Simulated assay, not measured.
Amino acid sequence: MASYQVNCIDKPKASSTHEQITHIGYYESLDRPRVVISVAEAIARIEANSQAFYVSTERGKTYLTVVKPEDGGKKHLKSLTDRAGIDNLLTLEEV
């Protein structure tokens, strides 16, 4: 399974702290410019075990997981927290 480092995100409003991320960006190879895909596409790839995505942290790679809300809400991505106690995905630059 290929894995890619996520280096940017997109949200409807960049300054919003509560709106979900809609897209993630990564470099597929040195020859290919940044690839931006929807969160729905990333979730499909993770759930199909065809690709994995991670955020680089002080402790190394922190892989993204799919969160499936119990109340039937919309699936979304999350990275595990490091010492900062925040979702590392939310600290990335905007697309």
Rank of each mutant, 00 (worst) to 15 (best):
S3Q: 14
S3Y: 13
Y4Q: 01
Y4M: 01
Y4P: 00
Y4I: 02
Q5E: 15
V6M: 09
N7P: 00
C8K: 05
C8Y: 08
C8T: 10
C8M: 09
I9K: 06
I9A: 04
I9H: 01
I9Y: 01
D10S: 12
D10M: 07
D10K: 14
D10I: 00
D10G: 01
D10R: 14
K11S: 13
K11Q: 10
P12C: 04
K13F: 06
A14M: 13
A14L: 02
S16P: 09
S16E: 10
S16R: 10
S16C: 03
T17G: 04
T17Q: 07
T17R: 11
H18S: 15
H18I: 15
E19K: 14
E19Y: 03
E19V: 05
E19M: 14
Q20H: 03
Q20V: 06
I21E: 06
I21Q: 04
I21W: 09
T22V: 07
I24F: 06
I24V: 06
G25I: 14
G25F: 12
Y26H: 00
Y26C: 02
Y26Q: 00
Y27G: 00
Y27E: 10
Y27Q: 02
Y27N: 09
Y27S: 07
E28T: 01
S29Y: 02
L30I: 07
L30Q: 13
D31H: 07
D31K: 14
R32L: 12
R32T: 15
R32P: 00
R32G: 00
R32I: 13
R32Q: 13
P33W: 06
P33Y: 01
R34V: 10
V36N: 11
V36E: 14
I37F: 09
S38W: 07
A40K: 14
A40T: 06
E41N: 12
E41T: 14
A42N: 12
A42P: 05
A44C: 09
R45N: 13
R45T: 06
E47T: 11
A48R: 10
A48Y: 09
N49Q: 06
N49K: 08
N49W: 05
N49M: 08
S50D: 07
S50M: 09
S50Y: 09
S50I: 12
S50H: 04
Q51Y: 10
Q51K: 15
A52Y: 14
A52M: 15
F53C: 04
F53R: 04
F53A: 04
F53V: 08
F53W: 05
Y54K: 02
Y54P: 01
Y54M: 00
V55A: 04
V55L: 00
T57S: 15
T57K: 13
T57E: 08
E58R: 08
E58S: 15
R59C: 01
K61A: 11
K61D: 12
T62N: 14
Y63M: 05
Y63W: 14
Y63Q: 04
Y63R: 08
L64M: 11
L64Y: 13
L64Q: 00
T65D: 15
V66F: 03
V66G: 00
V67F: 11
V67S: 02
P69R: 10
P69S: 08
E70S: 05
E70W: 02
E70I: 03
D71M: 03
D71P: 03
D71K: 06
D71H: 02
D71E: 15
G72T: 05
G72A: 08
G72C: 05
G72F: 02
